[in-house]
Measured scan of single mutants.
Amino acid sequence: KELVLVLYDYQEKSPRELTVKKGDILTLLNSTNKDWWKIEVNGRQGFVPAAYLKKL
């Protein structure tokens, strides 16, 4: 499993997105899109802007 660090808080703006908090370490599911990465948070899957995340 690949992990990502959340660099900035992000509030979901659609049902396909997820809310994340700065400092969270989460599972990366897909990073093929350069702008939006798919991650998992508490069993939910969704997208967060790639600029808000850093691969560990």
Rank of each mutant, 00 (worst) to 15 (best):
N30M: 09
N33T: 07
K21L: 09
L3F: 13
K13A: 13
E17F: 05
V20Y: 04
Y52N: 15
L26F: 09
W37M: 02
T32Q: 14
V4D: 00
L18S: 05
K55W: 06
R44M: 13
V4F: 03
N30A: 10
K21I: 09
W36H: 04
L18A: 13
E2D: 12
K34Y: 09
A50H: 04
W37I: 01
N42P: 08
V48G: 01
S31P: 06
I25N: 02
I39C: 09
K38I: 15
I25K: 05
L28I: 06
Y8N: 12
K34H: 15
L28N: 01
N33P: 04
D9A: 06
D9Y: 04
V4T: 02
W36G: 03
E2K: 09
G46A: 06
S31G: 14
T19D: 04
V48E: 00
E40M: 11
K54I: 15
E40L: 07
V41T: 14
K1G: 15
D35S: 12
E17P: 10
I25C: 05
W36N: 03
G46N: 02
K21V: 08
E40D: 08
P49N: 03
L53R: 00
V48F: 02
S14R: 12
K34S: 12
L5W: 06
K22T: 08
L56T: 06
K34C: 08
K13D: 08
Q45T: 14
T32K: 13
K1N: 12
L56S: 03
D35Q: 15
K1I: 13
V41L: 14
E2S: 14
V6H: 00
L56R: 03
E2H: 12
F47Q: 04
Q11L: 08
I39L: 13
D24I: 04
G23C: 05
G46F: 05
V20R: 00
N42A: 11
K34W: 08
V48Q: 00
V6L: 01
Q45P: 12
T32I: 10
E2W: 09
L3I: 11
L18N: 03
G43Y: 06
Q45F: 10
L18V: 12
A50P: 06
R44P: 01
Y8G: 08
K13Y: 03
N42G: 12
G43C: 06
N42I: 05
V6C: 07
G43T: 06
S31I: 07
R16F: 12
K21Q: 12
K1T: 12
V4S: 01
I39T: 08
L28E: 01
D35I: 13
L29E: 03
S14M: 07
K54F: 09
L53Y: 01
K22A: 14
A50R: 09
G43F: 06
L18I: 11
E2L: 14
E17K: 08
L29G: 02
E12W: 07
G46I: 05
K54G: 06
V20P: 00
K13G: 09
L18K: 04
I39R: 00
R44H: 15
S31R: 08
N33A: 10
K34A: 13
A51L: 12
N42M: 10
K54M: 13
L18H: 05
K55I: 14
V20D: 00
N33S: 13
Y8L: 11
G43I: 02
I39E: 00
P15M: 08
L5Y: 09
P49D: 02
P49E: 02
K54A: 11
